[in-house]
Amino acid sequence: MKAAQDIILKPIITEKSMDFLPLGKYTFKVAKDANKLEIAKAVEELFDVQVEKVHTMNCRGRVKRVGRYVGKTADWKKAIVTVSKDPKPGKDGKKRKSTIEFFDGMY
């Protein structure tokens, strides 16, 4: 099993992803071979929240040109994670958070 840091690579911060924050939806770049269950467990472990849904999509890399040479950026995977507004306590009995603190000051 992979570590949570190997599954969640980085947050995606765009205008569209910031519009989803009040709805409790957070966008991340994730490992290409990760599935929805692994992504949900990784987000719960890293940010101490309860995940309701995970939507994933494979994004194609862009074609780039430098003079006569054509190349392509790497393909990647994006996940939109919906966090529960009223989370249940965790397995250890601690209260979970209803938002991810990293994104709190952005909207």
Rank of each mutant, 00 (worst) to 15 (best):
M1W: 08
K2D: 11
A4D: 03
A4I: 01
Q5R: 11
L9Q: 11
P11L: 05
I12D: 02
T14E: 04
K16H: 10
P22T: 07
G24L: 04
G24I: 07
Y26H: 05
Y26E: 01
K29P: 00
V30Q: 01
A31V: 03
A31Q: 12
A31W: 01
K32E: 09
D33I: 01
K36D: 08
L37V: 12
L37D: 10
L37E: 14
E38K: 03
E38P: 00
E38T: 02
E38H: 06
I39C: 01
A40E: 03
A40G: 11
A40L: 04
A42H: 00
A42N: 03
V43I: 13
E45N: 06
E45T: 12
L46P: 06
D48A: 11
V49H: 00
Q50N: 09
V51K: 00
E52T: 09
E52A: 10
K53F: 09
V54M: 02
V54H: 02
H55C: 03
H55M: 09
T56G: 04
M57A: 14
C59I: 04
R60T: 07
R60Y: 04
G61H: 01
R62P: 02
R62A: 11
V63I: 12
R65T: 06
R65K: 14
V66G: 07
V66Q: 14
R68N: 14
Y69Q: 11
V70R: 15
G71I: 00
K72R: 15
K72M: 10
K72D: 04
K72A: 03
T73Y: 13
T73E: 15
A74Y: 04
A74W: 00
D75G: 08
D75E: 12
D75Y: 05
D75H: 08
K78R: 15
A79I: 00
V81K: 02
V83A: 05
P87W: 11
K88Y: 11
K88M: 09
K88N: 09
G90D: 15
K91E: 13
G93C: 11
G93S: 08
K94F: 10
K95A: 11
K97F: 14
K97N: 14
S98N: 15
I100W: 04
E101L: 05
E101D: 15
F102I: 05
D104K: 12
D104V: 04
D104I: 01
